[in-house]
Simulated scan of single mutants.
Amino acid sequence: MPQIPEKIHELSVGQLSARSGAAVSALHFYESKGLISSRRTTGNQRRYSRDALRRVAFVRAAQRVGIPLATIREALAELPEERTPTREDWARLSEAWRSELDERIKQLGRLRDHLTDCIGCGCLSLENCVLSNPDDVVGEGMTGSRLMGERRTPANSG
């Protein structure tokens, strides 16, 4: 990674891209979504403060674990402006995401465990499939396709 001299307090979009590993287009996208900010020079060029490096790293790490950009933006909004996020900031913010990630891991485990059953089942029923309709009570009790007359709904299960 190219080194940026300490005396430089602002980075061009090219410098931020080279140092962070994020494409210039990604940086523009992050800025449009409110994840990072820049100021404009008199020549209308973007200039990013050095803390943008840490913010971009934070965004990219959060994206790698599947955190939506809106959630990342909310987390970054909790930090004071123009302050580089610290390890403690990351720990505090990521702790809030732990339960969401744990639930996603459980869902992926269920998908993995039922994938072979689904392929072998042959029901081709999106309405009753354990994978595509995981909360279907009837689907938990039976496998395979169903006849229309066998279907019971809360309205007619009397």
Rank of each mutant, 00 (worst) to 15 (best):
E81G: 03
E81H: 04
E81M: 03
E82L: 08
E82N: 13
E82S: 11
E82F: 08
P85V: 01
P85F: 00
T86L: 07
T86M: 07
R87L: 14
R87Q: 13
R87N: 12
E88Y: 02
E88P: 02
D89E: 03
W90N: 01
W90V: 10
W90S: 05
A91T: 06
A91I: 07
A91D: 11
R92F: 00
R92L: 04
R92Q: 06
R92S: 04
R92A: 06
L93N: 02
L93C: 02
L93Y: 01
S94W: 02
S94F: 06
A96T: 14
A96Y: 03
A96R: 15
A96P: 01
W97T: 03
R98W: 10
S99P: 02
S99Q: 15
E100H: 14
E100Y: 07
E100V: 08
L101E: 02
L101K: 10
L101P: 01
D102K: 09
D102N: 05
D102I: 08
D102R: 11
E103D: 14
E103W: 06
E103R: 15
R104M: 12
R104G: 10
I105M: 09
I105R: 09
I105C: 06
K106A: 13
K106M: 09
K106P: 00
Q107S: 11
Q107Y: 05
L108M: 14
L108T: 04
G109Q: 15
R110D: 12
R110Y: 10
R110V: 04
R110I: 04
L111F: 08
R112K: 12
R112T: 08
D113C: 01
H114I: 00
H114W: 08
H114R: 13
L115Q: 07
L115N: 05
T116F: 03
T116M: 06
D117P: 00
C118F: 07
C118H: 13
I119K: 05
I119N: 02
I119Q: 09
G120W: 03
G120N: 15
C121F: 05
C121D: 06
G122V: 05
C123P: 00
C123R: 01
L124G: 09
L124S: 11
L124E: 14
L126G: 15
L126R: 14
E127W: 07
N128K: 15
N128A: 15
V130A: 11
V130M: 09
V130W: 11
L131I: 12
S132M: 04
S132L: 06
N133D: 02
N133C: 07
N133W: 01
P134G: 01
D135H: 03
D135T: 14
D136H: 02
D136F: 00
D136Y: 00
V138D: 14
V138T: 09
G139R: 05
G139F: 06
E140A: 15
E140K: 13
G141F: 13
G141Y: 11
G141V: 10
G141T: 12
M142K: 13
M142Q: 12
M142T: 13
M142P: 02
M142S: 10
T143E: 05
S145Y: 05
S145D: 08
L147Q: 12
L147R: 15
M148F: 11
M148G: 03
